[in-house]
């Protein structure tokens, strides 16, 4: 009886897995097709005559700079966001003060702003401080707009940290910075990895802010590579597919890495605990 249950479970899991892996395979086939095959052909079908030149087109378009910009902007914004968010979450959940609820409230309001409401005021602000067409504006914006969600995700975890851990550290004479950096941050590694993944995906795929705040080619990011293939009346979807494949690869690698970190963190904290 039990055995049949497991078999059914695995069958179900396998079906879902096929469904989840399909988009990547589909995207790869998409990147090797012509517009004609993409729109009028069967989406399951293999490309009749694989168009590797779609990839050539992408590289000819010169995505090297975009690639590098995407990487450093994503990394810097992610690191700053998680650091600032962790500190704020720590102060809100673990420290005793009157206004913690209010501060959390303000941060949560940040979740609620629709991007297009913010776009024009933000542009104007950056213009006034001369940050338009400067990658700093992008880094700051990504950092800020990811803070609320990062804090919210960390929140659920921070509230479950046993008091005893802190008490032990403080009574041992450790400073609060030491407590935060040496004890709290390491044991929150699994949840931090989770927020790293989420931040990374958001920063990597973002294009509304980049397109608005940046005008020089040398500061643009990979999502601009996609814009390159959208024309006034005609769009080269095969080349867009190739750009999407190229740009999803680093994020898959990073995801696999941090995904394992979720496990490692657990083991580490289990040893300590």
């Amino acid at each position: 009886m039990r055995r049949i249950g497991y078999i059914l479970l695995y069958v179900a899991l396998a079906i879902v897995a096929v469904f989840q892996i399909f988009p990547i395979i589909w995207l790869f086939m998409f990147s090797l097709k012509t517009n004609q095959e993409i729109f009028a052909g069967n989406p399951f079908a293999l490309p009749t005559d694989p168009k590797w030149e779609n990839y050539a087109k992408v590289f000819e378009g010169g995505i090297g700079t975009y690639f590098w910009n995407s990487i450093w902007i994503t990394v810097v914004a992610t690191v700053i966001t998680i650091l600032i968010a962790s500190m704020a979450t720590f102060a809100i959940t673990r420290m005793k003060w009157k206004f913690s609820g209010l501060v959390l409230g303000i941060i949560m309001v940040g979740l609620m702003i629709p991007i297009h409401s913010a776009l024009i005021p933000l542009y104007n602000m950056f213009l006034n401080v001369n940050l338009i067409d400067n990658p700093l504006s992008i880094v700051i914006t990504y950092t800020t707009y990811n803070l609320p969600i990062t804090v919210m995700i960390l929140l659920g975890f921070y509230t479950t940290i046993p008091r005893e851990i802190e008490e032990a550290a403080i009574i041992d004479g450790s400073s609060i910075h030491r407590l935060f950096f040496r004890i709290i941050l390491p044991i929150s590694a699994p949840i931090m990895s989770t927020t790293v993944i989420i931040n990374m995906i958001y920063n990597w795929n973002e294009f509304v802010f980049v397109n608005t705040f940046i005008s020089s080619d040398k500061f643009k990011t990979l999502t601009v590579g996609i814009q390159n293939f959208i024309g006034q009346y005609m769009t080269d979807w095969g080349a867009i597919g190739a750009t999407l494949v190229i740009s999803v690869l680093p994020i898959i690698l990073a995801f696999l890495f941090f995904s394992d970190k979720i496990m490692e963190g657990i083991t580490a904290s289990a040893v300590k605990g």
Partner: peptide, 11 residues
Amino acid sequence: HLWPEGSSAQH
């Protein structure tokens, strides 16, 4: 302008 190289090479 709005004629990117990738989609509108001639333009």
